[in-house]
Design a protein around this nucleic acid. Sequence first.
DNA 1: TATGAATGAGAATTCATTCAT
DNA 2: TATGAATGAATTCTCATTCAT
Lengths: 214, 214, 214, 214
Amino acid sequence: MAKRSAPEIRPRDADRSQKDILGAALAEFAEFGLGGARMDRIADRAQVNKRLIYYYFESKESLFLAVLEGAYEGIRNEEKQLNLTQVDPVEAIRRLIAFTWNYYIEHPEFLTLLNSENLHKARHLKQSKKIPAMHSPLVEMLADVLERGHKAGIFRAGVDPVQLYISIAGLSYFYLGNSYTLSTIFNRSLLGAKARVERLSHMTDLVLGYLVRD
Amino acid sequence: MAKRSAPEIRPRDADRSQKDILGAALAEFAEFGLGGARMDRIADRAQVNKRLIYYYFESKESLFLAVLEGAYEGIRNEEKQLNLTQVDPVEAIRRLIAFTWNYYIEHPEFLTLLNSENLHKARHLKQSKKIPAMHSPLVEMLADVLERGHKAGIFRAGVDPVQLYISIAGLSYFYLGNSYTLSTIFNRSLLGAKARVERLSHMTDLVLGYLVRD
Amino acid sequence: MAKRSAPEIRPRDADRSQKDILGAALAEFAEFGLGGARMDRIADRAQVNKRLIYYYFESKESLFLAVLEGAYEGIRNEEKQLNLTQVDPVEAIRRLIAFTWNYYIEHPEFLTLLNSENLHKARHLKQSKKIPAMHSPLVEMLADVLERGHKAGIFRAGVDPVQLYISIAGLSYFYLGNSYTLSTIFNRSLLGAKARVERLSHMTDLVLGYLVRD
Amino acid sequence: MAKRSAPEIRPRDADRSQKDILGAALAEFAEFGLGGARMDRIADRAQVNKRLIYYYFESKESLFLAVLEGAYEGIRNEEKQLNLTQVDPVEAIRRLIAFTWNYYIEHPEFLTLLNSENLHKARHLKQSKKIPAMHSPLVEMLADVLERGHKAGIFRAGVDPVQLYISIAGLSYFYLGNSYTLSTIFNRSLLGAKARVERLSHMTDLVLGYLVRD
DNA sequence: TATGAATGAGAATTCATTCAT
DNA sequence: TATGAATGAATTCTCATTCAT
């Protein structure tokens, strides 16, 4: 139980070290933002010599970019798992909303990371060669679902999939990302089990209520 | 007695100085976040000696709180102007959405300020004695509108006004607050005149499409 | 005699502080060059908080520039004292050589500072607005002396005063600035009293031997 | 067994590596001085793993010494080529001046290396067992030339060859080594073709004007 | 009310050097 | 002979904050 019980022999492993650093940096940037993050703490979290961070990642800025790229890679990979092309349109919309909701719940770092990046006017994102190439499959999936729904006479016509995608994301994003201020203002728990169920239900009702023509 | 010939006569009263500092701090915190803001720059922006900031506001933290309080005060004041009690329910919803949208567009600082505050887990907000007392009239207005709409047979039943309020806010907030990353990812302008009209239209369609029963 | 006997109350004096810093920086840069100089040591030498250096001088680089400007100002001021316009040409040349020689001996910092600046390709000098304006009066004095000497039938004609000025400086500069290596190589003291007299005598003979026509 | 497909076949022998390192270090030390030189950059320049530098040369300091020794070896070798014993005294002086001038022009590293070494008070030179043994043949040549010139009734008597050697070196050294600051101060190109011819001519006139008795 | 001078505690980054293979 | 991984000790510079008037 002693903090320093064993000298913790760490076998030299470049890949491992880099991954540890990235993981630690993700946590740190998510918790404190780019400006508030500390390289020292990242080194501590990664259990790595601070100098090693600079060895692999040139600077705080480029470390942040690497973390951001990893975050986009992460969500894109998950998105790919979500196959909606064969699914009934109404059910597909449900899954899409639930997916976004759950992903944000499970990856709160993603939200704060995006906030940081927007505070910095997407400065890092624009430098990235990787991220712009990682197209989200969701918009195309959504376009397909909307079209199938419309052809089946279920959904309304003329819905811009990009707008709807942004709306679906925004419904979860704002609720989760601002839960601290919102719950204080409304004096109401937003993240309890019951509240979550209600929110997901509301969002689904909202979007399907809009889409479905009867 | 002045060392320099023309000592830049600039008589300043206490109120004026405090307002200048708050204005400068708002701009600074909005641009860089709490962590990235610099007291030096705030002093420069306010054209005030740095020491004076500490004279009026104890520390960076309490200056941030004061700024946050000012920001909430600002939006609450505007919200009060929006009188929807006599307005046709459908039109009322339109106005509510448009109000939120326009307020965020005209006050982008509000968005980044809220992001900062959430990054810090609403630490300052919780300390504030003022903000919790400033209840937003919008939720009650919305409750009233929803009820009138339902009674008139126009709107669906069972809509939680808080959920809908959060949704309406979220639809604008995410789009505007993340416009830098979104426009980069989608390679599409989000803030041009045409795009704004489309977004407002989409959001209105979405919410009314959900609410209105035919 | 204790190092920390008295807390050494240092009255707040902006001018004094700046001068102390400049003096300490001059010594440090002279001893270690720009690259080898340490801001910490400069602060120690100046008995000043390290932060204060950055308060008055933005960075190490601009501190170096300020020091360089001070050094040029110093030599230019001394040069102005040297009035040769009424002096017999031969005597004037003697004084000019002796002045340069003595100035370099008394201000060895000037030599190493110049070496540093040349190592950096006069990067700082080129930024300076002050130094280029500080024209050395020596070249004009020398031109006057050469002309008077020639008219009096004593000196040879066609001597470029800039070339001769550089030569006179070089004769002292190389000997003094490279005395460590030279004395090691030649295994001979260069800076003893006798050696100094001999060197000054040699330089004077060399230049006058060249100039004087018989 | 190589991890990467084409492992950049580059068979290297020990000698080659050492020479590459020395060459790279010479360039680096010449450009940045001892303090400003970076082991990393030397490794890059030499296209060699940084660790290898330590394998062959113990430390930065001893690498510098090795470079310095190489530099002295280089100039001494060239000096040996300059045979003046059979040459007419006046012509011999011309050649000596021209040799020094040209060597410094072709080996500007030598000048900055010497400056560095003097900044460090000849610390490395004094450690060297090689350099003190490499006596410059120039002083003896000069002594011989001066004596022959005197005996032929051409040159003045009593000239110290060491003093004159230092003077000849200094005339070139100062002009070339300080060309950046001098050309800025005098706002005049010093290294153009015409300027070089003029300088060499001036230096030759100066020395011969002093030596030759008519 | 106002301000220029000053500072301790960090913070990012650098650097020569060593470890392990 | 050669190299990628790793590090402790600086080093420049930053920042919120306080002192003294």
